[in-house]
Amino acid sequence: MMPQVVTVKVTDDGKPFRIWVPLIPVLIVLSPILVLAALVLAVACLVLRINPFAAFARTYRLYTALRGLHIEINEGRSTVLITVT
């Protein structure tokens, strides 16, 4: 299942800042750029003699596997938390 939301929480000196990024609307907005990037990737695959379909499939799989990723870094009173749900 595709990841839906990336949550970034930054706490600096006790002041929290939290942002939720809904991935599907972001992907829709960025779709023209993504199409261009896919074309560039396909050309690069052909130049490097890599099956572009396999490359796309595995990249998509990597993207979908991001769901559940959790990164938390605390240093003193500062915290950075990134979660993918």
Binding site: I50, R58, A65, I73, N74
Partner: peptide, 26 residues
Amino acid sequence: GEPSKVNVRVPIQLLRAGVRLATLVP
């Protein structure tokens, strides 16, 4: 002197997907 902590949770599926993508490296 200052306590710092890193806590990372990586889905096992992400490791597998990374390995499969790495097989395409020329």
